[in-house]
Each structure stands twice: as C-alpha cells, then as structure tokens.
Simulated scan of single mutants.
Amino acid sequence: MAQRFLARTGGKTRQLEAKATSAGAADAGKIPALDSSGKLDMSMMPAGIGADTQILPASEALSAGNLVNIWSDGGVAKVRLADNSNGRAADGYVLDAVASAADATVFPLDGTNSELTGLTPGAEYWLGTAGGVIAVPLDETDSANANKISQYLGKAKSATELITEDDGYVIL
C-alpha cells in the first residue's frame, strides 16, 4: 500500500494515496509512490529511461536467470533457452520465470543478470546448456566439442550476479 497524504480537493481536506503506477497524462501532477522493490514503476519514467528490454513470447518454460536465444518461429520472434550444445547462442536473459507461450521480458547482454546462483565473485563464465552458465570454457581442441558454441558471457559480481558482455561467440 502506498503512503497517504492530505490534500484539498473540492474545498475539502481528503486523504489520498500516492500513485504506484501511471496511466499517462491522466495522472499528470500526481505524487508518485515507490513499488514493492523500493523503486519507481517503469510506467512513471519518460521514454528512453529504464531498462532496454524486449517483450517476446517464450516457446518453452523459462526460469529466472536463464540465458535465452531469440529465434524466428514462422517470422515471429520468440525466445527459448540458450544452449552451447545445439547452436542456440545467448542473446539475452530473463529475470522472471515465464511459462511456455507467455510473454517474457528479455534483457540484452551487457547488463547484470541478478537471478543466478552459485557463482564465484570475480570468476568468468561461459554459455552452458539449458540456459545456464559454466565456469570453464569449452576446449576447442576436443573433438567432442565440434559444432558447439563457445560464448564468453562475463564476470560474476557476487554469488547471484553476472555482469554480462556481448562479445559474440564462436562455433567450434
């Protein structure tokens, strides 16, 4: 619940609640409230301010923190788990779990994926399988890695945060 304040409206003092989200011009001049995470809702931010995200339908269930691959399903962009073993390079990541066919908010690489677990702060990570990461890059001299993707993803800031980089990838 947002905080309440007293305001004079129609010649009377009334208790009003600050707005946690904006409906646009209809809410001009209203007092904003922080959301449950202690931040302003993105609906209150001007165009161009906020996370650079894409809203795309998921073609499979995704878990928070998964790295995802954007692909064309009959000309419609969708997201699925990135995977070094089957040609699905990471194009971004999701911070919330998403059911198959539901819309996913995809954050591009070059941001911080804060929904991972078990990372070692300061360690480097590469694309793994099923939307995950691995701490050791694939050995390009190992014939078992032929046609797999070697993609550097970034460095861990904490046990749950990976500062990602968009350095491209190599097919071994």
Rank of each mutant, 00 (worst) to 15 (best):
G11N: 00
G50E: 13
L119Q: 00
L40R: 14
T21Y: 11
K148S: 10
M45G: 02
D35M: 06
P121V: 00
A47H: 07
K148F: 13
V170P: 04
F107S: 11
I149K: 10
R80L: 02
Q15D: 00
E140G: 14
A23Y: 02
P46W: 04
N84E: 05
A26W: 03
T120L: 01
E60N: 07
L162S: 09
A97I: 02
D83I: 09
K155C: 11
A47Y: 04
I55F: 05
T164G: 05
E161V: 03
P121G: 02
L138Y: 07
A58H: 14
D103P: 12
D27H: 10
K12H: 00
D142F: 12
N86Y: 01
F107E: 09
Y93F: 14
S158E: 12
D103R: 05
P108H: 08
D73H: 05
G29R: 15
L81W: 04
G38N: 13
V133R: 04
T164Q: 08
I55S: 11
A51G: 15
V106T: 02
G131H: 06
K30W: 04
A77N: 14
P32D: 08
A135Y: 03
V76M: 02
D142I: 09
S63W: 01
A104T: 01
P57V: 11
D167Q: 08
S114F: 02
D35L: 05
G10C: 02
T164N: 08
E115K: 15
R80D: 10
A33K: 06
T141Q: 13
T13E: 00
M44L: 13
T105A: 11
D167Y: 03
G11T: 00
L34G: 04
K157G: 13
E140F: 07
L119F: 00
W126Y: 12
V98C: 01
A104G: 07
A146G: 13
R4K: 06
V133I: 07
S59C: 13
R8N: 07
D103E: 14
V98S: 00
G168D: 04
M45A: 12
M1R: 04
E17G: 10
L34C: 06
N86E: 09
K30P: 01
E140Y: 03
S36I: 13
A102P: 07
G128M: 08
R8W: 05
K30E: 13
A20Y: 07
G11A: 01
P32M: 08
T21P: 00
G74D: 00
V79Y: 02
F5W: 06
T9I: 14
S22Y: 10
A33Q: 06
L138C: 03
S72Y: 07
D41G: 14
G48H: 09
